[in-house]
């Protein structure tokens, strides 16, 4: 590869847009051309500078409120949740739809008592609260051996703390919070410019299936491992939060990582 070609392709390489053979050619060129390697280093530095959070301009609350629904928080306010299912019903055969509509209120009644929805609501509120200035962290550390002991004496359980920096989810700190009537440990991770809050508290049930829900632009993933309830919330893409949860759980069962 010649430097002239490399000048342009360098950016595609940086952006992970080259195919395998071009990537190999570029890596080879960068090893042998100090000028292009220096360019590459400069642009890596530039990219790192872009991850500073203040560059990303989030929508003001007023705008968000204007375009958000009031969420159904009580039994009296069940209608919006039911309408959310209406398009599915309409797409079915008419008789089937009628049958489905009759069962919907019962279906909803069953779900209403499930406090998972309430937890999602509270998790989102907690996450939004945590994004206010000075609210995010009580202990600031990227070291799991600093964060974990910090919780000792503040909670009646010892939270699981993992550093997933190698996978692109660096741990940045921890905080005490309250969720669903419990005192909970909140771990704060970052994914590029995004914040991930991971709440945990002990429960009596052994395990529960992973549940994923989305509300107000946030993804919430809940699960239970070894008598510990976990709720992860973030505005990252759902697939990335899934990956985070997977990594955290995998790590948790691997004896080598303890």
């Amino acid at each position: 590869m010649m430097c002239d070609d490399a000048r342009l392709l360098l950016h595609a390489y940086l952006d992970n847009e080259l195919d395998a053979s071009q990537s190999v050619a570029m890596e080879h060129h960068l090893r042998h051309c100090s000028a292009c390697a220096a360019q590459h280093a400069d642009f890596l530095q530039l990219r790192a500078a872009f991850t500073q959070a203040s560059l990303y301009r989030r929508a003001p609350d007023a705008l968000r409120v204007q375009w958000s629904f009031p969420e159904p928080t009580s039994a009296a306010n069940a209608a919006p949740a039911r309408t959310r299912r209406a398009p599915i019903a309409l797409s079915m055969a008419a008789g089937f739809a009628a049958a489905l509509l009759i069962t919907l209120p019962a279906f909803y009644a069953l779900h209403r008592h499930d406090n998972a929805n309430l937890t999602v609501e509270e998790a989102i509120s907690g996450h939004i609260r945590s994004m206010q200035p000075q609210h995010l962290m009580d202990v600031i550390s990227t070291d799991q051996h600093t964060v974990k002991p910090w919780f000792a004496g503040k909670l009646d359980f010892s939270p699981r703390v993992k550093d997933l920096a190698n996978a692109g989810f660096p741990l940045v700190g921890g905080r005490l919070d309250a969720l669903d009537g419990h005192d909970v440990a909140a771990l704060i991770y970052r994914r590029r410019l995004h914040v991930i809050n991971l709440y945990q508290w002990p429960v009596s049930s052994e395990t529960a299936a992973v549940s994923v829900s989305q509300q107000r632009g946030y993804t919430v993933i809940q699960w239970t491992d070894e008598h510990m309830r976990f709720v992860a919330i973030s505005d990252v893409e759902e697939s990335q939060l899934q990956q985070f949860v997977q990594l955290f759980r995998n790590d948790a069962v691997s004896p080598l990582m303890r």
């Binding site: 990303y56 301009r57 989030r58 929508a59 003001p60 705008l63 968000r64 204007q66 375009w67 958000s68 629904f69 209608a79 919006p80 309408t83 959310r84 209406a86 398009p87 989305q214 107000r216 632009g217 946030y218 505005d235």
Partner: peptide, 26 residues
Amino acid sequence: FRPPASTPRRTHFEVCVLPYLDAAYN
């Protein structure tokens, strides 16, 4: 402007589009 009252269409809109309000604003 206030978006119209809750309808299935609006709910669908909220689920599909609203998550990207920050991206739009940025």
